[in-house]
Design a protein around this nucleic acid. Structure first.
Ligand SMILES: [Mn+2]
Ligand SMILES: [Mn+2]
Ligand SMILES: [Mn+2]
Ligand SMILES: [Mn+2]
Lengths: 253, 253
DNA sequence: GAAAAAAGTTAGCCGATCCTAATCGAGCTC
DNA sequence: GAGCTCGATTAGGATCGGCTAACTTTTTTC
């Protein structure tokens, strides 16, 4: 019973998909990029439904040619599905930038609002906002905004703080968290995008960090969500990778 | 089988209602204000569903204490229902003002976008937009924006152009149309809010109008949707009402 | 004031999306 | 490689908001 014959439906603009379908595609995209691939369970957690619901939706998305899927395996987006997902990520991050810059939202407030608006704004709205903000390339958390043509900068040079060796210096570029309390903590610690940091040491529970003169422990849980632009090793320690201090970073949006 | 026992559900914030339910409440509100009351058929037309669907939804809304209803009669909003409806109208018109002023939308483009956004923005968004625009009191079509406290100016002094007697002078204040082509026509004819006009004569098919030096026929269909602030009768003709040139004005939003 | 027309309602149905409970399969453990 | 565990799927059901077709009530017409 090989489900999902290839590409059943005709061309799909994101417009014809339900917000729910759009959220599935977006989460599949975000999970594929990072982490261990888009499994039923991870999707269920991110989207806030039960695994059985995910299976059901994935079947429908497969029928419409938006995902490719084999039972008991992780899903992947088709090219069509990917396009819709990236379009949605553009909406989301553009909206976050807009809410922050134009409407004066705090950075911990933008995510929730963007989560709902992303499904509803027109291409005109997207266009006008992009104009107003002069085509921003980062949202308030440092996440790259896909271009109008849906090209997405890859940030390959960024490294997770949790995995940096002692002595590393660099600049915080992205904070891949959405939870308001967590973001407020990051702000309290002055670990915002743009801050210069140095890894003073490795703890079992996190990273000892030098930021703006002070030194403190950044718990692994937090360190795993801070992406750092590492400076060309000025210190002694060779920049070799460590493993296991934190799991690969993801973040919902 | 007297359906709808009074006030079943607990307090409802507009947040807990589906976009569909919100649209029903809004249209009931707009129809009650004007026109012959919110009948099943009129609601069906405005909302774009079949009459049977309206009956079904009205039953559900009655159960939740948002409308009062007797079979075969027009519906009315309860106080709770009215509050939600006005909140939605505020969202809608505030959004139209925002889209027009801040994002540079044309006045014929704002309605459609606001129609979708109104259900999705948070109170924070409403608040921030109101601040940004310094609490505007009119949307681009001249429709009054309910205040934060949901007070709605009544515009009782405005009269439908279609019903004005020959010789009346005044200023166009509201254009209660949403259709893009119709709005473009209005713009072409320079009948925008703020324009001074004089009724040069009554035709069977409309009104002969003097606007900015030129004189032309405004078809009844259009005239019924132009609300005029009538100047204290400077001309001879006593300002007595005419009937039948057009039906009472309404407009969806 | 009856009959016709129009408006409203009911009954039965459908698709989308979610749920719970039960079953199935993949992959690690020993 | 036989189990066991955990993740995934299936089965069955609920709710929501739409639809059509048939029926009922109100309103208009003459
Ligand atoms: Mn979303
Ligand atoms: Mn972000
Ligand atoms: Mn709407
Ligand atoms: Mn308007």
């Amino acid at each position: 019973m090989n489900a999902a014959a290839e590409g059943a439906g005709p061309y799909k603009g994101s417009a014809s998909l339900s917000p729910s379908q759009q959220d599935y595609l977006k989460q599949i995209f975000l999970l594929n990029d990072t982490s261990r691939g888009a499994t039923t369970q991870l999707l269920a957690e991110r989207i806030g439904v039960r695994p059985a619901s995910v299976t059901g939706m994935l079947k429908r998305l497969a029928e419409e040619g938006l995902v490719e899927r084999a039972p008991y395996r992780a899903v992947h987006l088709t090219e069509t599905g990917r396009r819709i997902a990236v379009e949605l990520v553009r909406h989301h991050r553009l909206l976050e930038a807009f809410l922050s810059r134009t409407l004066g939202y705090r950075w911990d407030e933008v995510h929730e609002e963007a989560e709902a608006l992303e499904h509803v704004i027109s291409e005109r709205f997207e266009q006008k906002v992009a104009e107003l903000l002069a085509d921003p390339d980062r949202d308030p958390h440092g996440d790259p905004i896909p271009t109008r043509e849906l090209a997405l900068e890859e940030d390959q040079h960024l490294r997770t703080l949790a995995l940096l060796p002692k002595g590393s210096r660099g600049t915080i570029r992205r904070v891949t968290l959405q939870d308001q309390d967590a973001l407020n903590l990051v702000e309290r610690l002055d670990l915002l995008p743009g801050r210069a940091i140095e890894v003073a040491g490795i703890h079992p529970d996190g990273i000892s960090l030098l930021v703006g003169g002070s030194r403190f422990l950044v718990p692994s849980l937090l360190a795993a969500h801070l992406l750092v632009d590492v400076a060309p090793h000025p210190s002694s320690t060779p920049p070799k990778k460590r493993e296991g201090a934190g799991r690969p970073v993801t973040h919902e949006q």
